[in-house]
Write a protein that binds this DNA or RNA. Sequence first.
DNA 1: ACCTGATATTTGTCCTAGACAAATGGAATA
DNA 2: TATTCCATTTGTCTAGGACAAATATCAGGT
Lengths: 310, 310
Amino acid sequence: MRTIRKAAPLAGIATVERDTGLSKDTLRVWERRYGFPNPSRDSNGGRVYTSEQFEKLRVLRRLIDSGIRPGEIVAEPLHVLAARVQALPLRIPRAEGEAAVASAALRLLKSHQVGELRALLSRSLMQLGLQRFVLEVAAPLNERVGNAWIDGDLQIFEEHLYAEQMQHLLRQAIASLAQDAQSPRVLLTTLPGEKHRLGLLMAEACLSVEGAQCISLGVETPAWDIVQAAKAHRVDIVGLSFSQAMPLKAAHEGLFDLRKRLDRQCLLWAGGNVWQRTRKDIPGVTTIASLAAIADALQAWRKQHVVDDH
Amino acid sequence: MRTIRKAAPLAGIATVERDTGLSKDTLRVWERRYGFPNPSRDSNGGRVYTSEQFEKLRVLRRLIDSGIRPGEIVAEPLHVLAARVQALPLRIPRAEGEAAVASAALRLLKSHQVGELRALLSRSLMQLGLQRFVLEVAAPLNERVGNAWIDGDLQIFEEHLYAEQMQHLLRQAIASLAQDAQSPRVLLTTLPGEKHRLGLLMAEACLSVEGAQCISLGVETPAWDIVQAAKAHRVDIVGLSFSQAMPLKAAHEGLFDLRKRLDRQCLLWAGGNVWQRTRKDIPGVTTIASLAAIADALQAWRKQHVVDDH
DNA sequence: ACCTGATATTTGTCCTAGACAAATGGAATA
DNA sequence: TATTCCATTTGTCTAGGACAAATATCAGGT
């Protein structure tokens, strides 16, 4: 029960773990091996990180997630790392209009015009419809907000605010949709450690648009409880969402574990950005690499199950 | 990168941490001090827990969350612990009429009738209006769901499901309310460590009903970011929500710290169940002991500020 | 009886430094 | 070009020791 945080620019190891996603073990072993981060110590020998170190760790994390190995870059000074982040391949914007709305939204977010932001998104939702809104506005905007935070263009509170607004909007839209009895019952949640609500909510939106009966448990449900819930609600499919922040290893492990304990007949779908970076399959688990693929997967399910029903 | 699991009912320390919420350090130190859990080891000395140990850890966690100290119970055999869970004290229900809807909702939740639950709550909201719904249905139901979880009457996934449904409903209701330019701008969030979203959302509902302009950052915003956000949005009031789960000391400390760094003119309101159990004041902080008191506080603010404006 | 303050015990987090397997990169081979 | 093998990199795990925050216990005063 060490003091977790003190003044604004200094943070203990627990805080750094929480806010960078790097485990305490990793932070310590980097310090031992590479000499970075090199935190000062409090009166009791506890590590105290400066905001500069924190910033560099964030950038490092971003680069490592993109496939670069830690040993090659930990020693580099921050400005070199920042340059490498800039040089990272950008996802190609799909349509033309999508980039425009996202840029406008980002600008409004930065200038703290909440009402205008909400109005813009709401209008865009009305124009495009939920499905296209999620695919063409929400998902790209999500990514850009994430990047902007890592680059230091956005404060944490601005990201919080964005997430909150988008949640409001999506929930409202989902609530107004009808459910189709012919469609599968889907249990939606994430595994412990994955706190990204918006990914889950976007998935729920895509499923609901297709008429699926979604039962969302929110975020971070332990595997054991997922099994219980699937049984209790007799769902056809368990859908899990994984953001980029989730370490691939943990995702694999959790899915493997869950598949073993789940009922045979219950399908297990794993969606989220992680799956774009791997092609390793887990037997009995359907990976869904993009939000757009959700509709296809659902269509496929329908084709297979329309006969067997009853 | 140790091999985490082998045969069916066995789990490594990482899995147990994930699914019980007990940290690796805690598991190891319990083993050292109390001799439980006493996992066997794999070929490399890694801990391998049985499903019995896992189950007992779950029950232990429930009891500890209810206030019992680990040292008193870790040594007890599982069936004794189960008995203690049953013997846990129950809370007294408040009024009579309000209990009816809450009881019905709880029953539906337990029998997994999601559609019916949603319909019941929705109907109740329409009948009572948002303000009364929050005070007379949502808040008591919240409490009962919390208690039921501690008593083992509800699974975690059932609590998750409840929270999700209630969030949907409240957000929808809030979104449909108009804002009053005469009313204060309120920044809403919780401090790190306080993860209870529903309390925050209920507060937002009560404030919105009165026409306040709420800017919610969601949950767990670091103090430094709250200060930045308050400045950026030029809010009149910062509102923080604290559930019973929050240790009183941490709440005091966080508020004291925040008050120091916040702008003089910006008011600081602290709400939530914690404040019913203390009367110690923090200078410059208004504690609001119940949801019903929010309306009064807002009225008082209006009376004081209607003249000063412009 | 109830509050208040000092003292003792409990409890979780953090520390060091060593070990090892999974993932990765590159070279040699088919 | 594709596959196999070896060396390096990397993150997770281990063992006790240390310590401060949280909690319980007990004293004395109102």
